[in-house]
Design a protein around this nucleic acid. Structure first.
Lengths: 245, 245
DNA sequence: CTGCCTATTCCGGTATGTGGAACAAGGAAG
DNA sequence: CTTCCTTGTTCCACATACCGGAATAGGCAG
């Protein structure tokens, strides 16, 4: 179904940085003819996935995506079971904790617990490239190589000096992660930020990942294994609580 | 684009109650031939909007919806600006407060602040039929009749004795809401539950709604206007804070 | 008013999606 | 183990629904 791939490319144009786009922007980004883009957008408007305030205004993503997102959230085990252990991990380590979920094709960050005085604020739903984050690499490493390879076909964007941008480099690292049971993101996504992650499993299937994140100074080599123990224990605890329903 | 309407009908099959469906379920619900459903689902799988754990397993909505939902959330003004006033309203009234957003086509509930001891818990993203809730009716009433009519074409499900199931009844009520500036849901969605709502406007455009909800006993006729004053004031305050960026 | 930029409509050819029918793959029952 | 039945999946010839270049309409700035 070719038309749906066009839909996909068009949806890909939207991002948190550019949530509103004109027809020509989209045509240019996708390389599709303007007419075709217009027809697809027009149909997406019909079904509520795209919204245009007035004719000749920019296009935006429709709230129907949020509504559908709500259905997914209510069906996911990870967010429910992870919240409490994640908060505990945050207090144990004093560092920010990320939770993300995995459905076999996408890695999506759904919760972030941050130390903010004594309270923990929850921010939701951000996009995460799978090859350059602690959680993403933990998930990739927990999958068979073949499956993992399908998830990294996208473009390799270099966020920092340390970002991995070669497939064989990545799979070498995944092997290490597999062996020791946790992943480390050493300033690969953002300068000055390190991160230790582990996959969450449910009935032998990878369903998500958890990680602690913080400034390099607070994450010396010596502390990594200590954090890793806590992270993997929390990941296991979450997995276990899911098993029990 | 006919195929996208099929996509829409297929997506509509999924709900919080039935987040996982088999091919035949979907074919039956939509009335589409099994082969067609299979082809569409297969393509939706390709682009990450639908997920199937293993071949011959049930189909589920893909996490990409969540990821896209995150983009929308970050672009919406209402959630950011409404949280604080909504919490204040909850404490003023001692009742649960709902926030929903509107994009010209869909009404989606995004926040619910509930009195739970002294803490307020935030639950997110539920689906709301627009004709039978305080927030939904407040939004419909804030729109020109013609626009509102386009939003209520769907089926009229009778949730309780009081649910409005006739278009002229609804528009009669909308006129009243328009005149007095707030909406009342008198056990129209759920027995024993009343609710007072008002639309949130941003630059003369309706962008959402806010409401207080509670058991009938705590919402006598005499209290409604009192609550309405607080709700409309809060709605206006939210609208104002959006204007200012 | 004029020029230039958008979004939108038109239309004939053909690629693209269509859906009935046949096929495989598990699961349940005997 | 075998049989039967239900489920998802593949095949293929047909015709329809999509394609995209070119022309149109509508807004905004100068």
């Amino acid at each position: 179904m070719k038309s749906l791939h066009k839909v996909s490319r068009i949806l890909d144009c939207f991002s948190a940085e550019e949530p509103r786009l004109g027809l020509n922007d989209i045509a240019e980004k996708t390389g599709l003819p303007r007419t075709t883009v217009h027809r697809v957008l027009s149909s997406l408007k019909d079904i509520g996935l795209i919204v245009q305030d007035r004719n000749r205004d920019d296009y935006r993503l429709g709230l129907r995506f949020l509504s559908i997102g709500g259905i997914i959230l209510s069906d996911l085990d990870v967010p429910r079971h992870a919240r409490e252990p994640a908060a505990a991990l945050m207090h144990q380590t004093g560092e920010a904790v990320h939770i993300c979920v995995f459905d076999g094709g996408n890695v999506v960050s759904i919760d972030r617990h941050e130390m903010d005085g004594n309270r923990n604020e929850i921010v939701r739903q951000e996009r995460e490239p799978p090859y350059c984050t602690g959680t993403g690499k933990a998930i990739l490493a927990a999958l068979p190589d073949e499956t993992a390879r399908k998830l990294v076909v996208k473009e390799w964007k270099k966020f920092t000096e340390n970002t991995i941008t070669q497939e064989d480099r990545l799979f070498h690292e995944l092997a290490i992660i597999r062996a020791r049971g946790y992943s480390v993101d050493d300033e690969e996504r953002q300068n000055g930020i390190r991160c230790v992650g582990a996959a969450i499993r449910h009935q032998a299937r990878v369903v998500g990942a958890i990680s602690v994140t913080g400034p390099k100074q607070r994450f010396p080599e010596s502390r990594i294994p200590v954090l890793a123990d806590l992270v993997t224990a929390t990941a296991a605890r979450i997995g276990l609580s899911i098993e029990q329903g």
